[in-house]
Amino acid sequence: MMSNLPRRRVCIKPGAIQPGYRVLDGIRAALDFDSLGLTMDTRIGIWGYSGGGLASSWAGEMASKYAAELDIVGVALGSPVGDPASTFLRLNGTAFSGLPALVLAGLRRVYPELDWVLGRHSSEAGLRLMKSIESMSTLTAVRKFARYDLSDFIDVPLADLLAEREVVRVFDEIQVGRVPLNVPVFVIQSVRDQIISVDDVDGQVDRYRAAGVNVTYRRDKLSEHLSLHVLSTPVALNWLADRFADEPLALGSTKTVWSTGLAPSVLPALLALGWDAWRAALGRPIRP
């Protein structure tokens, strides 16, 4: 259907931060879709977890320049990586080494200079590995490439490879927390996260605050990466609901709790979300 909203030029940007641009362009597409009944003054909240938290970080950082017409009221980030380079090094050779392998396979497709460096230093087996992983799902890659060490597939020490100018530039470009957002931010992270280091997320929060961003930061002691994804859902949505309702927002704070699941509002919200998911799976209407 054709919309009466003013058309905007969609510009595909190069580099690994494309997910941020795609989030913003996806919001524009939703506003342009007549059946949703949205208008240009529709208020918007951005929310993502893990890799989605990283993409949401980029989207929030780009919004003021790339999509200034969007009325974004807040950005909620769950385990948003914080430092991709640090995460890459820490996970390499571990049970989750398929994740950095996926990242590397994706980066080499959008950064020709990185592809050139990898091609120059990788063995034939390494090149085959990166080619095969491009079409894998995340779970398949994690299962198949657990304990793989990139050092086994290159002809120089890993530290030397990562110190090459082209590689440094790529990881520098995809770092988050260096561009201030002009909306409040909510961040939640597990202290015991086995995939994303709490120190890296602490750093992202510190960089935002140093730039003047109002950040509400919650650190969870008992959860880990996957369980916090579930437990943080109602907390993040409630925080966004308050932004939509123009509830007063205190200055940013950091609070470490034993478990997000102990918050009084979490269990009822999880039960409601589960009921709605079940009704949706059956093709039945859900609550507004």
Results as ranks from 00 to 15, higher is better:
L5E: 09
L5Q: 11
R8N: 10
C11H: 12
C11S: 11
I12M: 10
K13I: 10
P14D: 10
G15C: 11
A16P: 01
I17L: 14
I17D: 07
P19R: 12
P19N: 04
G20A: 09
G26Y: 03
G26P: 06
A29M: 07
A30P: 00
D32R: 12
D32W: 04
F33Y: 12
L36T: 07
T39D: 15
M40A: 15
I44Q: 09
G45N: 09
W47V: 14
W47L: 15
Y49R: 05
G51F: 06
G53T: 07
L54Q: 15
A55G: 12
S57F: 03
S57N: 10
W58H: 09
E61G: 11
M62F: 15
A67Q: 06
L70C: 05
D71A: 12
G74E: 06
V75Q: 01
A76W: 04
P80T: 07
P84C: 08
L89M: 09
G93M: 04
G93Y: 04
A95R: 14
F96T: 01
S97H: 02
L99I: 15
L99T: 03
P100V: 10
P100S: 10
A101Y: 00
V103K: 01
A105S: 15
L107Y: 12
L107T: 04
L107E: 03
R108S: 11
V110I: 10
L114A: 12
W116C: 01
W116N: 13
V117E: 14
G119A: 01
R120V: 02
E124C: 01
E124W: 01
E124G: 03
R128I: 03
K131W: 00
S135M: 05
M136P: 02
S137M: 04
L139D: 14
K144C: 04
K144W: 02
F145C: 13
A146M: 05
A146T: 04
R147G: 00
D149N: 13
D149R: 15
D152W: 01
D152L: 02
V156A: 08
V156K: 09
P157R: 06
L158I: 13
D160Q: 14
L161V: 02
L161E: 08
V167A: 11
E173Q: 12
I174F: 05
R178H: 11
N182V: 11
V185W: 07
F186D: 02
V187T: 04
Q189P: 01
I195G: 02
I196S: 02
V198A: 14
V198H: 12
V198N: 05
V198W: 09
D200C: 11
D200P: 05
V201D: 03
G203M: 07
V205W: 05
R207V: 03
G212F: 09
R218C: 00
R219K: 15
R219F: 07
K221M: 14
L222A: 14
E224Q: 12
L226K: 03
S227Q: 09
L228E: 10
H229Y: 10
L231P: 00
P234K: 08
P234T: 05
V235Y: 09
A236V: 01
A236F: 05
D242V: 07
D246P: 02
L249S: 13
A250N: 07
K255L: 13
K255V: 13
V257H: 01
P264E: 11
P264N: 10
P264K: 12
L267Q: 13
P268T: 11
A277D: 14
W278G: 11
A281C: 04
L282F: 09
G283S: 11
R284E: 12
P285Y: 06
I286R: 15
P288A: 13
P288H: 10
